[in-house]
């Protein structure tokens, strides 16, 4: 009865009860709400959302660490809350941005131990460990105590731990968080190679790097405040914006030009003004490319000079702005001030 679906959720919800104190009564925090997702076997699925969106919460529920408060979820064919023992042998998980592991064991010992918990035959485990460490460029540190590794290297070790047990469904929570650019590239390539090697392997990763989601994922769910706002292939998500023409214009000086003036132009659907030393950077979304003439006209009236102008393809960032009404960075700073 091997189902085609690696992950399936139905109206999944999670509410945290926050402990009250003398000043404030108990509060409830809705971390996930009515999440309906299906991920097929062989997919690389991305969860994209700002801080506090509920990505980690969703991973915790799917990996049997946290009970949902409503709805249900199935991973590798079994229900995560009623049948966790059937789920666990088939999954693994890595969270980035934290250094876990037994510092007094060597890299190899740490990994070997976990492979034994999954019942991987010792010889095979050792072969896999060497091969995987080679792939992430950690082989020469195999016999180093993991406490002596830098945070980034320890994270790589942790990533290897996730892949080592050859899970059917692998969950990566911000796997590249805190890594330098080179290491990030290594890890991304490693993820893609691993998936390519076996069509049945499924990987769910969370990220708040738009480019990462775009580069890696077959499908992406955009999630904000616990709700899935859209879920599709990155190209399809972007198509909905394709009708708009996006322009980046650098001008100098600004001469009192405001965002509102730009928005007042009939064909301008979105405008952002970011002041820089030499003037300002404008991001415009136009109904039609021809509307650019009108904007240039406005510049002439205001005596604003165009320093550079480029047309750009929509990104997932634009999709997020389109769905939420503000950028992910704005959403995050807003979250903090709340």
């Amino acid at each position: 009865m091997s189902s085609l679906l690696a992950i399936e959720t139905k109206d999944l919800g999670r509410i945290y009860k926050l402990r009250g104190n003398k000043k404030e009564p108990r509060k409830e925090l809705v971390a996930l709400q009515d999440v309906n997702l299906t991920v097929e076997r062989g997919e690389l699925f991305g969860l994209l959302g700002p801080n506090g969106a509920g990505k980690t919460t969703l991973i915790k529920v799917l990996t049997t660490l946290l009970s949902p408060t409503s709805g249900w979820a199935r991973v590798a064919g079994a229900d995560v809350s009623t049948d966790p023992d059937a789920v666990r042998p088939k999954i693994n998980m890595v969270s980035g941005g934290e250094s876990s592991g037994y510092g007094l064991l060597t890299v190899r010992e740490n990994l070997w131990m976990f492979s034994q918990f999954y019942g991987v035959p010792s010889k095979e485990a050792n072969e896999r460990i060497v091969a995987l460490l080679e792939m992430v460029g950690l082989k020469d540190r195999m016999n180093t105590k993991s406490a002596e590794l830098s945070t980034g290297l320890r994270q790589k070790m942790n990533i290897v731990r996730g892949f080592l047990t050859d899970p059917e469904v692998l969950f990566l929570d911000e796997p590249t968080l805190g890594l330098d650019v080179g290491a990030m590239r290594d890890v991304r390539r490693f993820i893609l190679d691993w998936l390519k090697a076996d069509q049945e392997r499924t990987l769910l990763l969370t990220t708040h790097y738009m480019a990462e989601a775009e580069e890696l994922c077959d499908r992406v769910a955009i999630i904000n405040k616990g709700k899935v706002l859209a879920c599709d292939k990155p190209s399809v998500l972007k198509q909905r914006l394709q009708k708009d023409a996006l322009f980046e214009i650098e001008v100098s000086p600004l001469n009192g030009l405001t965002q509102q003036m730009l928005l007042d132009q009939p064909e301008v659907t979105k405008a952002a003004v970011q002041e820089i030393e030499t003037g300002a950077k404008l991001s415009l979304s136009l109904v039609e490319e021809s509307a650019l003439a009108r904007v240039i006209n406005l510049f002439t009236q205001k005596d604003v000079k165009v320093m550079s102008l480029s047309k750009r393809e929509p990104t997932l960032e634009d999709v997020f702005v389109d769905l939420v009404g503000r950028s992910m960075a704005e959403e995050e700073s807003n979250e903090r001030s709340e």
């Binding site: 049997t64 660490l65 666990r88 999954i91 693994n92 998980m93 976990f114 999954y118």
Partner: peptide, 8 residues
Amino acid sequence: KYMYIAPI
């Protein structure tokens, strides 16, 4: 948490 999600 990694011990918990392992099949042990």
